[in-house]
Design a protein around this nucleic acid. Structure first.
Length: 212
DNA sequence: GGCCAGGACACCA
DNA sequence: TGGTGTCATGGC
């Protein structure tokens, strides 16, 4: 039996769940906060940290550049790894201010590969965080791979669970149109599917992907 | 009360 | 290079 195409999987998830309207943030900067804070953390905890920043009126990198590290760590405490993530936000704020004068439009104008390399050089910005920023904040056509993607697509035998981030990304980008909207929606649908059906104990019989 | 989340990184062989 | 420990919260 041949495997269904990625586009077909995308379409069936889209019809099962509808558009996810990602990323759940009001501004590009808020996307970047979320991308850093969401590392290996539940979104519920991330929201608490973001709300704390909002209430303290610190949800902008201009403010993060000025804030004391310990105060920042306290605000983002619910998002785990507070000291590391506080440092990551400070480092990003520094970079964003120095290089782009806190202007997201300046970043958007540059080529994807150039910005990706810059992002990857920053503290605690690895491939998933960099690509989330590129896709959801800067609207660049790059596919985001996360733990749910690996779980779902290894379980369905498209890939092996231990295949590299780059291998997964190549698989998706070689088999889908290079389209920001599709990459955005597909990854959002994968996370939604994973959250509902592909926890460590999978609920495959209830998952829409089991019908393919 | 234990398990685990929308990772990244350091350290060691 | 790859394998493993660390980071140090809060919801279910």
């Amino acid at each position: 039996m041949s495997q269904p195409s990625l586009l077909k999987i995308y379409e069936s998830l889209l019809s099962a769940f509808g558009p996810r309207h990602w990323w759940p943030a009001k501004t590009s900067e808020e996307v970047i906060f979320g991308a850093i804070l969401a590392q290996n953390t539940t979104w519920k905890n991330v929201k608490q940290a973001i709300n704390a920043l909002k209430e303290a009126e610190k949800l902008s990198f201009k403010d993060i550049a000025k804030i004391d590290s310990e105060e920042l760590a306290t605000l983002i405490r619910p998002a785990r790894f507070l000291n590391q993530k506080a440092k990551a936000l400070k480092v990003f704020a520094d970079y964003f201010g120095t290089k782009y004068n806190f202007n997201i439009k300046k970043m958007k104008r540059l080529p994807l590969a150039h910005v990706r390399e810059e992002l990857l050089s920053l503290y605690r910005i690895g491939p998933e965080t960099a690509d989330s920023i590129l896709l959801y904040a800067l609207e660049k056509p790059i596919f985001v791979i996360d733990a749910y993607t690996k779980r779902i697509f290894s379980q369905h035998r498209f890939m092996k669970i231990d295949d590299s981030y780059e291998a997964y990304q190549k698989f998706f980008m070689d088999n889908l149109p290079h389209d920001v909207q599709i990459y955005n929606e597909f990854h959002a649908l994968i996370v939604h599917t994973g959250y509902l059906y592909c926890k460590p104990k999978p609920l495959c019989e209830e998952c829409p992907l089991s019908n393919l």
